[in-house]
Computed example of a mutant assay.
Amino acid sequence: MFTSDVPYASVLRDHLTRTVRFAIEEDLGSGDITAQLIPADQQATAQVITREAGVLAGREWFEEVFRHIDPTLQLTWLKQDGDDLKENDPLVDISGNTRSILTAERTALNFLQTLSGTATMARQYAMAVEGKDIVILDTRKTIPGLRLAQKYAVHVGGCRNHRLGLHDMFLIKENHIAGCGGIANAVQKAKEIAPDKRIEVEVETLEQLQEALAQPVDVIMLDNFDGQRTTEAVKLSAHRIKLESSGNMDLDKIGEVIMDHPDFVSVGKLTKHVTALDLSLRLKTDR
């Protein structure tokens, strides 16, 4: 899979370039003084391996770091984004100037290990609903500055993206409802502000659900509904409006609510509880 495969490809590409540039500036500062210990013309080969099983994501971020540091470096990929990885699998071979490889190493690995960790988590959740007509969604609970990168990794792992940000759809939650004086008022105002945008409303009770079902909305979010209340919500909706289960979702809780077949389950853990995949770069110099 590549960044060009998602609907927000052009925005993602710009985001990729900007985040890589900032990450390099953050790490490099006035220059890599440790790399200066190595002869300037020394050449080397290197290979990145994974020390644990997972799913690869972030190739293009990794490439962009090496391209920015030294465009003469050669990268040969042995795995693609979306591939399942086994412990000690080689991922990519690198050849070129030793100093350049070592200067790029940490920033490039930071992107690759974080996005691979995100994709690995997403794959676990996608497998949990395999064969069911349920879509796992991410949330806005992302690492600041890496929103679109993590959403790409979620896609790589087999789950899908909710809204990208505050701009592309209405998500009317508890505080919005309180501020507007009720669900009906909030939905009416949303229709006035941007009639072409999708509207989702969060409900916390079955009474609120009934109120939301009477409104022209696209999705209703069931906030912290247990299995029994999810069953009642599905019956009440009668598939008139799509339902999304949300609220501290993990693999155990998903197993409880998916038996009642909401249309979507949103999982903040996909991006906020992510653990980076353990990757390592091994260098061999040409002497």
Results as ranks from 00 to 15, higher is better:
Ile177Tyr: 14
Met127Arg: 12
Lys132Arg: 15
Thr98Ala: 10
Gly145Glu: 09
Thr139Pro: 13
Arg140Met: 01
Leu164Thr: 12
Asp168Ser: 09
Asp133His: 09
Thr139Ile: 00
Arg123Val: 00
His155Leu: 13
Asn175Ile: 12
Leu115Val: 03
Leu109Asp: 08
Tyr152His: 08
Pro90Thr: 04
Ala149Asp: 01
Leu146Tyr: 09
Glu174Arg: 14
Ser100Pro: 12
Gly117Tyr: 00
Val135Trp: 04
Lys79Cys: 15
Arg106Cys: 09
Ala149Asn: 00
Leu164Ser: 08
Asp83Phe: 11
Thr118Tyr: 00
Arg99Ile: 03
Asp168Leu: 03
Lys141Arg: 11
Gln124Glu: 12
Ala149Gln: 03
Gly145Val: 12
Tyr152Cys: 10
Asp84Pro: 09
Ala104Trp: 09
Gln150Lys: 06
Glu130Val: 00
Arg106Trp: 13
Gly182Pro: 08
Gly181Met: 06
Arg99Lys: 13
Thr103Met: 11
Lys151Met: 11
Leu137Met: 11
Asp84His: 14
Ala153Ile: 03
Asp168Gly: 07
Asn175Val: 10
Ala178Gly: 13
Gly182Tyr: 04
Lys132Met: 09
Ala153Asn: 06
Thr120His: 01
Glu87Cys: 15
Ile101Asn: 01
Lys86Thr: 14
Asp81Ser: 08
Arg123Asn: 10
Gln124Gly: 00
Asp84Phe: 15
Leu112Pro: 00
Arg123Gly: 04
Asp81Met: 08
Gly117Asn: 00
Thr118Asp: 02
Phe170Thr: 09
Gly96Val: 10
Leu137Lys: 12
Gly96Cys: 05
Thr103Val: 14
Arg106Pro: 12
Ile134Pro: 06
Ala149Thr: 04
Thr139Ser: 02
Leu115Met: 07
Glu130Asp: 13
Arg160Pro: 00
Ser100His: 04
Leu109Tyr: 05
Asn175Phe: 10
Arg123Ala: 13
Ala122Tyr: 02
Gly181Ser: 09
Gly165Thr: 05
Gly179His: 07
Asp138Tyr: 04
Gly117Arg: 00
